[in-house]
Design a binder for these strands. Sequence first.
DNA 1: ATATTTGGTTATCAAATGATAATTAAGGGG
DNA 2: CCCCTTAATTATCATTTGATAACCAAATAT
Lengths: 143, 143
Amino acid sequence: MDNKELFYKMVSFTASVHRVTNELTKNAKPDSISQVQYKILEFIAVNNSTTPSEINDCLNMAFSNTSRELSKLSEKNLIEKIMDSKDRRKQSIRLSDEGKAVMSEAFAIIEARFIDRIQNASEEDLKDIEYALDTLQNKLFYP
Amino acid sequence: MDNKELFYKMVSFTASVHRVTNELTKNAKPDSISQVQYKILEFIAVNNSTTPSEINDCLNMAFSNTSRELSKLSEKNLIEKIMDSKDRRKQSIRLSDEGKAVMSEAFAIIEARFIDRIQNASEEDLKDIEYALDTLQNKLFYP
DNA sequence: ATATTTGGTTATCAAATGATAATTAAGGGG
DNA sequence: CCCCTTAATTATCATTTGATAACCAAATAT
């Protein structure tokens, strides 16, 4: 298989991932937050602690918009902005307790759908899936 | 590994896929079309021929909005709507020649970035990647 | 023959997002 | 000290997207 074919395989793969992600996360977020806001919370949840710049890079939007959305999330008490004591321009962003609760609820819904999706997989299949996730994360979807 | 761990692995994996997809597709689309319009074109390109309903399901938006965006794409001569001769309510959607050209250009940019991303992978790695893509597509991200 | 369902369209309005620019404040290098 | 860069904020405006509802026409079921 040459690179071009592999490329098309990847395009079709990512399309599937996006479709399934849509399906799994559909209506999992509370109505009180927008789609990007949910994406931001998810990013923070996965990364535990992060910075506005990192969030901005990963969600690839204009920085001003990231800043705006973070302010909104902060007003809603879903995140905490903590000033860096060494470099006072920087801040680190974490989920507040309320934010953690929101994400736990969302993840519970998504997890149930995920479990449903793999319910027919054998032990063997699950091992394959796990190995494949690791492989792709390390070799293709690395930072 | 229990299901909960596998779930978290998948969440973090899909986050990576989204991030890398963002990176690869950044500015690849022409300015004349919006993000969703690009997504729709991509979906049609991957599926060759499809219907408004299918597009709607996969992009998971309100049908009226799908219809609106398809009209816009049609006005821009990027897609063709072809009436089904048997059931005249249905239509099939294809890329026009112009639409194909637009997508070829976009894919060329994305492919170059993709090649760059895998340039350090060995033949062995590429085989692993290909196998992992197939595995996940069949066992986890199936329709 | 007439409901009902299916596939799709159109209009409209609110909300979210994108893009740009001007601004503040802190850190680093010469 | 002055200049430049980095990190982030705020304001503003255009555009996109989401959501809802009313609608049409073809197919299907009763």
